[in-house]
Each structure stands twice: as C-alpha cells, then as structure tokens.
Write a protein that binds this DNA or RNA. Sequence first.
RNA 1: CGGGAUGUGGCUCAGCUUGGUAGAGCGCUUGGUUUGGGACCAAGAUGCCGCAGGUUCGAAUCCUGUCAUCCCGACCA
Length: 479
Amino acid sequence: MADNKKMVESITPMDTDFAKWYTDIVKKAELIEYSSVKGCMIIRPYGYAIWELIQKDLDRRFKETGHENVYMPMFIPESLLQKEKDHVEGFAPEVAWVTHGGQEELAERLCVRPTSETLFCEHYANIIQSYRDLPKLYNQWCSVVRWEKTTRPFLRSREFLWQEGHTAHATPEEAIAETERMLNVYADFCKETLCMPVVKGRKTDSDKFAGAEMTYAIEALMHDGKALQAGTSHYFGDGFARAFGITFADKDNKLSYVYQTSWGVTTRLIGGIIMTHGDDNGLVLPPAVAPIQVIIVPIAQHKPGVLEKANEIAEQLKKKFRVKLDDSDNTPGWKFAEYEMKGVPLRLEIGPKDIENNQCVLVRRDNREKYFVPFDNLESQIEEILKVYAENIYNKAYENMQKRTYDCKSIDEIKQVLAEKGEGFIKAMWCGDEACEDSVKEQTGVASRCIPFEQERISDKCVCCGKEAKHLLYWGIAY
RNA sequence: CGGGAUGUGGCUCAGCUUGGUAGAGCGCUUGGUUUGGGACCAAGAUGCCGCAGGUUCGAAUCCUGUCAUCCCGACCA
C-alpha cells in the first residue's frame, strides 16, 4: 500500500503554502476551472451547487424581510454612471467598457455594471411619486464585472456572482434600520448556515463604499489569520436621491428626497467557507450548503445484496437529506479520499459485514469519528450527527478567531504580535483621525477592518497618536 | 500596475544549456481479477510543446511580442 502513495492525489498542506493549498482545493474539489479570460472562472456543477444553496437560503431570508427580486440591465450608459461624483470616482478605475455594437462605434460607451446603484436610482426616480410608494425593497441576483488587477478564484475575480439589495425609504431612521437589519441577516446567515463566525461593525470613512454615508461590514477571519470582508451593507442618506432626482410627495404634499441603502454578498463566501473550515484533506462543508450531505460507499459491492441494500438506504435517506450513492468501480479507499476532498459531511459505509449485523458505518468529515448505526435508527442519527457537526465546525472556527484576536495598546505591541503570533485580528483604540489610520498601516502593515458594534475600552489613548481614543477598531491584513 | 517564477496529451512533470520533428507516471478506453483508507494484470487511444511573429535547410529547444497562471508588493467584494 505504501508503494502506491505516489499515485495519491493529495493537496499541498496548509502550513507549507496556504495559497497553494487554497487553489489545490478549489481545483481538486471540482469547484472551478480557469477560463481563457484572466480572472473569469468556470464555476463547475459542484461549486455552483454550493452557490445555489447559498442563494436559496439567503433568498428566503430576503423574502421574509419583505424584499422582492428584480432584474436590471447589465449595461450602464457612461452619462448615467457619472451622475454621482464619489460613486464614479470609486468605480471608474475598474469598469469594463463596451464601445462597439457590431462594427459601429457607439455614440455613448456603455459600462458593464460593476454594481447597479445608478440603474436602481434611475428606475426609482421613475416609479416613486408618493410616500405610498415607499419603502421600495428590491434585490437582484446577477453577475457584475470589475476589472481587477490581481485575481483569485472566488476571492477576487473579474466577473463574480452576487446579490445586491437596493432600497428606498421615506426617512433616514428607516433607511439606517434597514442597513442594520440586512447586516444582521448576513451575520445570522454566516453563523447559522455557513458555520462562520463574523465580526459586525462599521467601516471607517476612508474605507466606505463609493457614494455611501456609512458602510457596515461583516469581517471573518481565515485559517491563515487574514481577514475576509464577507458582506457589506451601505447607508446612502439622500446623496444618490439628490443626484438622480428621486423625490416623493409626503403626507403634507411636500416634496422630499428618499433615503437609500444597498447591501450585497458574493461568491466570495465560497472562498470564505474553504478558508474557514478546510483542512489538509480538502474541503469541509457546512451541512446546510453541502451539495451532498451523505455519501454512500458500498464495500465489496459485487457481493450479493450489497448494492441492493445501499440503494434501499439511498432511496430512504433521499427524502430527508441530499444523498449520493457512489457505485462506480473505484475502490472504497479512493472514494473515501475523493469525498473528503469534496468536503461531504458524512460518509455511510455499507458492506457484507454490516448487512449481517443489521447496521452501517457513519464517518464524520470534520473529525473522522466513526459511528455504528442500526438501519432502523439511521435518519435520526444522521440528523443528530449533522447538527453536532455543524456546531463543532462553528466552534472550531470561533476558537480560531478568538485565539488569533489580540489586544494591542501601542504600535510596538502590534508589531510584536505580528512578528511572534502571525497575522490575525488586532484590537486597538483609535482617535478617529484618518492620519492615524494611515500611519498604523504604514508602520505595521495592518489596515482597519471595522469599528465593531461591540465596543470595549481597552485603553483611553489612540494606539498611534496617544490622544484620546474614540473607538475600538479591528485591524488586520485583508484578502 | 511594479518585481519574481511558470506555460509540453485530462493531471504532474522530463526533454530546452549544445536546434534534427516528443517522453514518463497518473488519469482515460476495453477485457479480466479485485473491493473496510487513493487496487492489480493485459491491450489500446490521446500532443499544431499557451498563442503570434522572427532566425534557420530544419524550432518544444534560439530571439521578439503577446496571453494566461502562481508568488511578493500597491489597489480592491
């Protein structure tokens, strides 16, 4: 057996090269294939199935909070994009332009949407007349294009799939409440569905979305100690409304501008799942988004009765779980490794011995724990194990985040922590001055991630200038 | 966008220095033996050597350009 090790398709260990480990998983778990255009990836069935499960869960949450889905065009005329000054400036460096239709040059070039605020605003200006038309709670699922310079599968691609919510409200209070509510929807989703702990907070002014008055974000911490912005929710005030003329007549028949929000998450979440839960054997999927929750591996499948029983179990379990029976000619060992690579939460082994004993074997992906389970107790056992499994991977991720979160009171402490413990979340006080934010980044390499909602006062002084501190800030090195 | 590395059957790579018309292992196909941690035997199929120019009687090999991927920085969901 040892002689065959060289044939084993394994992945680069995390500790050897984290970036290589990541791309190995992405390829070998058959999530994506590179395409011939830089930064554009082919999302393969297994990868897309994860996205579909993410979509389904989030979409339910959006509908439950009163949102409706729409679809906007993918092209934005240049003049429309330019209506809001900060917005164009933020996005201009990374938009792709369409300049020709067939052989003819267009009179006005069209940008491929990098985000759809301008389209929603143009539309809202047309359809909102009265306070009775508010609020407008719209969302769209689509892809957007940003011409990134350095690209990585899921984490930063030039075209990516996402969802963008765009809402319009009569008052600032209502819009801010919406911004916060959707950030909470994202955080709950990350915890409950992706088993991924996040820090909720507000972005500093320098880190706000182009055109936003306030940007909220959820930040997750990856296995290598780098931070991943997993979702954002923006409050626009009436800035866009003024630029686009979105007005409504209120109850007193006075004309007012609407207050708006937007919020989004992307396929980047899949990258987050990989780097939060994965290990040296491959992907580890949260049960709620695992395209296959239980993989059935028959042992000695040519022996009479084995495949029959395996099929019977598969049919029975299909009613409750996403199940696959692999009756291919590959050896059991090959199948074990294959579905571990793909992060399938539970493996069900069934062979002649099991059938004799009226039981089968369940093996967890997260810790390889084995269970011998009688046939008549299978469904409730699987349900129970998946629940424990989800809790376990969440707890592991949470502990990793705690372990890699450090309180620092000075620049030197930050440097020391980074040198001794490696990358992670740095908690440090900040005076609110952008100069200090820049200075910390320049001196230590960590940038501000967010001002967490859960504020603590670990010191009275700004970590940089020593003046009175206004906020506790999370810092880190981001993806 | 700067610095570095790499592109050769589906995958991992050898061949390139010193030009002579392409190899290995894995995978794939067929048949057989196997099956509780990536099986074995036998017979097969698969290459415009990333792409475009150039040098040469002749280019995977030398030169130029270009595209893509990876790593390190600056920017970013």
